[in-house]
Simulated assay, not measured.
Amino acid sequence: MNKTQYFEGCGKEGLIRCIFLSEFHPTDGSKISCQVPENYVSDKIFGAVNVYIIPKKQLLTCTLTVNALGVKIVGYPVRIKNEKYKRNAFHFNLCFVCDSWARSVQYEPVVKKLSEYLIMMEEESGFLSKEGENRQRLVQMFDKILKDLNESKVSTLVEGENSIYLKIVNHRPDPPLVKDYMVPLLTFEYKDIPLESWDLTTQQILPYINGTNHIARISAEADVDINLVKQCIQNLAYYKVLCLLPILKYSNVYMCTQNLKNLIKDTELSLACRTFVKLNPDKPIPPIQRVFLFYASMTHGISLRSICQRLNPQNNNIDERKLVIFGMQHNFIRCIHKYPVFIGNEPEGRQKMYTGLCNFDEICCKTGLSPFGIEKDIDKDTNVTVIWR
């Protein structure tokens, strides 16, 4: 893996490079008492960040992440109060170390759970604080955890009568906000799942999810409350069962993205695209050159209708609607939306919707008017301008 191609915030996950235990010694101060592999975190690095490894009391018992000098350290600083310790307290921090660019949020619950396990062992038998004792056992534990979590993302520890199960769970981003005018489309791998395998609400709306119907229409045709439909669609989108697309209209304007190059570089993706966009199943699949040309012709100010009139995709056995759907699914293209903005003094009637926050799709869905009707209305109104974005 070439580390130079990644950066903090890129979202890529990396391996756990090191696990170490830091303690606060009554005379020596903060130090690393156990580390696997040895010397991965150098004295220079630890010296630069130790104020965050054994921090002030305000930062205790909360997950802290420090990114410095090429490493990212995730820890959970702890203080155990007891008169048996010098200074009446024992401070330690169990830390995972990964590359500075790596996503680390998935390690935070594991670090916290393992720290709480060590607290229990310390309170029961002084497992951590007895100098010289149990140190080799701690090294073996860290070595096992490091290998297990990197290889299979799960690890089980048994120490006497105590056991702990650790698992790295990937955190997904928040589910998308689902609006009435959005069009859901099942991803390819979920299209052939039997209807009875889904929950009851999904079974009701699934026959109407075709990449053309928007949420409001699905609600009406399936006779299911629209809020229930939105919740169901949002849940399916969260688990990437489906994606949400804008309403497909020939008046839409699309623009190709830098991901379009993947269509040429990836032969499997190229074949999948040509097969999907085929208009007549009895004719040969369209050539990649014509498919690429259609996508590359999409730019600001040119509608889908204009491109179809110029390139006539059906002559090359291309279904332009499927072409747009595939392009949106794989981020080859994006839709340029139109947002009307009222610039007069006091808006009246439909003008109140022209805030610059609602695009044509949303306004059409709420009013029941066609895009042409909205366009005609706006053209007559000198107090309304349109933003494309």
Rank of each mutant, 00 (worst) to 15 (best):
G70Q: 02
K3Q: 08
L177M: 12
Y40M: 08
D148L: 06
P340H: 08
S306P: 02
K167Y: 01
G349C: 09
T355L: 04
N316F: 13
A237P: 06
S306K: 13
I336S: 08
R274A: 12
E13Q: 13
V154Q: 11
E189N: 14
N93D: 14
C98T: 15
N50V: 03
T385P: 08
P340D: 00
Q5P: 05
L357V: 06
I302F: 07
C10T: 07
N82R: 13
N262C: 01
K230I: 11
N252W: 07
L293C: 12
P347W: 02
R305S: 11
I45D: 01
L157Q: 12
K72D: 05
S306W: 04
L114R: 06
Q309C: 05
F294W: 12
C273Q: 02
S30D: 11
F90M: 03
F372G: 14
D28Y: 12
S251K: 14
I164E: 05
Y208G: 06
P176R: 11
N150G: 03
H300W: 14
R79M: 09
I302Y: 05
F332H: 13
F7G: 03
L248D: 10
F46H: 02
K112D: 05
S251W: 02
T61V: 11
C34E: 10
E38N: 11
K261C: 14
G9K: 10
C18Q: 04
K265N: 10
M1P: 14
V169R: 13
I32Y: 04
Q58W: 00
F24T: 09
